[in-house]
Simulated assay, not measured.
Amino acid sequence: MTDKNTYDGAARWNGPSGNAWIEAQSVMDALYQPLADVLIDAVPRTATTVLDVGCGTGGTTVTMAGRGAARTTGVDISEPMLTAARKRAEQAGVDVTFIRADAQEHEFEPASYDLVMSRFGVMFFNDPVRAFTNLRHAAAPGATLKALVWRDIEDNPFMTTAERAAAPLLPDLPPRDPEAPGQFAFADQGKVRRILDESGWSGVTLEPVDVTCTMPESELVGYFSRLGPVGLALPHVDEATRAKVVDVVRPAFDPYVKEREVAFTAACWMVAGRAA
């Protein structure tokens, strides 16, 4: 299992994971657009100062800036992804500040945001209570928190299809540890409530959200061979093993493929709270 105290998100997201996301950016943007829409629809339209945590390539950040927020800031640990985010903002003609930092540690201006939001960017903190305490200090009194996070692994079988199929060929794939920083670290709603309560957020709610996400079938091999545990492992194996993994994993996704389209249900929590 991954020791949550040794998880090195900076190395991963400034290296293989961040670079893989950039390579697949157009696919990932389209795949997760329905989830971005759900998050944007859920945040207050009155928000004027916005902090987007784990903003990645800036899709939700730029959308909020385009909606008229007076000041929009995106923070992420990945410089490759922030480079793409800055380019996106420039192309959209919006004024956004992007900060390369760990939101757990960064010294934000106190009480300066009336909305703290995130799409899949808050599950990777080594110390989530410390992180959300820091974010609360950055939030103005009464500010809104809205974060979209993944529910249980069992509710999201698409996300582990590749690693389950590839396991016999890649025996060193790390097992998922829901207690460690990672994709499913916020699956347990009791754990999330404890984190937010201890870090000073009030009125905490978690509402289940189920959204259908799609991608062209032609992009499927590129998706699972770049991203996730299998994507991280494949650059370190020989070409014959890589080809064998692709041959084995691709049919495992057949239940999700219909008429040249891949479709799956993303099972998430919409986490909400207010800065006390």
Rank of each mutant, 00 (worst) to 15 (best):
T2R: 13
N5H: 08
D8A: 05
G9Y: 10
A20D: 01
W21Q: 03
A30W: 07
L31E: 01
Y32C: 03
Y32M: 09
L35W: 08
L35H: 07
D37S: 12
L39T: 05
D41Y: 14
D41V: 13
V43T: 14
T48A: 08
G56T: 11
G56R: 09
T61E: 07
T61W: 09
V62G: 01
G66Q: 05
R67M: 07
P80E: 04
M81F: 05
M81R: 05
A84M: 03
K87D: 15
V94D: 00
V94T: 02
H106I: 12
F108E: 01
M117C: 12
S118I: 12
S118E: 05
G121M: 14
D127N: 09
P128E: 10
R130T: 07
A131P: 07
F132N: 06
A140V: 13
T144D: 15
L145D: 05
L145A: 04
K146N: 09
A147F: 02
L148A: 02
L148T: 02
R151H: 00
D155V: 03
N156Y: 04
T160V: 15
T161Q: 08
E163P: 14
E163W: 15
A165P: 02
A167C: 05
P171K: 11
P171V: 15
R176F: 11
P178I: 13
E179T: 08
A180E: 03
P181C: 07
R193F: 09
I195E: 00
E198G: 01
W201E: 00
T212C: 03
E217L: 00
L220W: 00
L234M: 10
H236G: 02
R242Q: 01
A243H: 07
A243Q: 10
V246H: 14
V249H: 01
F253V: 06
R260K: 14
E261K: 11
E261V: 11
A263E: 07
A266K: 02
A272I: 11
